[in-house]
């Protein structure tokens, strides 16, 4: 690559921007670094005054403890609950979105009602849901949480997938219909493949919402199906000697999210803005 000489003015501006970028990134990533680092520290290093900014050595005993005590089951629970509910929400939500997008089922009103479901504050929903779950014995089980997360994510999936489906050229579907496929086949063999990137991105975000949720899990789990954010708060009550556990559990619970979101970076903006902004 050949780069011509930059005018001095531009070179200065670029240098300043890198400096700014460096400072901003440092500010925002330092807490993450701190958390990460503590998870590798020994207790002596964690409770050192003044705090140590670099661990003496990388050691995994903090993680080992989580496995030994069986606390990682919380991660497993989160995986099951978030994974299954994301899968169901994606399938049902996409079908519903197709109907809204292509047949205009229920008109604008149904679409608005669905998105308004997303606006309802979780705290207002969780209480009556709890009462009903107690009645039906659904508290502290996989089924109850999965059902709730599915319902909570459906409006998001429907809204996002409706946007992606509307972008599929109608001619493609019409051509398949003319070629002799029925609607059901058109959905599975033409529409799904076309919206696959959007489908993947929406699945990831759906998974992340369920994974990160705390309130529902706090209310609806007791001892059996504790998810990872709830497990994390269980450590708070104790003395600060639970720091190692907090840090290690946080890192374990953040890694999958970070990997998933990094892969889906292209869709991040559209995903978190309910499609209002196309990145």
């Amino acid at each position: 690559m050949r780069v011509g000489k930059l005018p001095a003015r531009k070179a200065r501006i670029l240098a300043l921007r890198y400096l700014g970028a460096g400072v901003v990134t440092l500010l925002f990533l330092f807490p993450v670094y701190w958390l990460f680092m503590i998870s590798f520290k020994t207790p002596d290093e964690i409770y050192h005054v003044p705090p140590l900014w670099i661990p003496g050595q990388i050691q995994f005993s903090n993680y080992y403890v989580l496995f030994k005590d069986g606390d990682v089951v919380a991660i497993l629970n989160s995986l099951i609950v978030a994974g299954v509910s994301a899968f169901i929400a994606i399938i049902l939500g996409t079908l519903c979105a197709y109907s809204l997008a292509r047949f205009g089922t229920g008109g604008e009103n149904l679409a608005m009602w669905i998105i308004s479901q997303r606006m309802i504050p979780p705290i207002a929903v969780v209480f009556p849901v709890f009462l009903i779950y107690v009645y039906f014995g659904l508290v502290d089980g996989y089924f109850g949480l999965i059902l709730l997360y599915t319902a909570f994510n459906l409006p998001y999936v429907i809204w996002m997938m409706r946007g992606y489906i509307v972008d599929v050229p109608l001619e493609l579907e019409e051509s398949a219909l003319v070629d002799g496929l029925n609607r059901w086949e058109v959905i599975w063999k033409v529409v799904f493949p076309m919206v696959r990137p959007g489908l993947m991105a929406t699945s990831v975000f759906t998974f992340v919402f369920a994974w990160n949720d705390f309130l529902f899990a706090l209310v609806l789990t007791r001892t059996e199906v504790i998810t990872f954010p709830v497990m994390l708060t269980h450590y708070f009550g104790g003395q600060s000697n639970f720091w190692a556990k907090i840090a290690a559990m946080s890192v374990l619970g953040t890694l999958p999210i970070f990997v998933a979101v990094s892969v889906m970076q292209r869709y991040l903006v559209r995903g978190i803005s309910l499609g209002a902004v196309k990145g």
Partner: peptide, 27 residues
């Protein structure tokens, strides 16, 4: 990198800052 804080669980964010703010052992 800058996206990282936004995608982590708010509980993790809170826990992180609790460690950051700690009067004796926090930075």
């Amino acid at each position: 990198l800058l996206v990282l804080p936004t995608v982590i669980s708010p509980i993790v964010a809170g826990a992180t800052w609790r460690l950051m703010f700690d009067v004796r052992f926090g930075p």
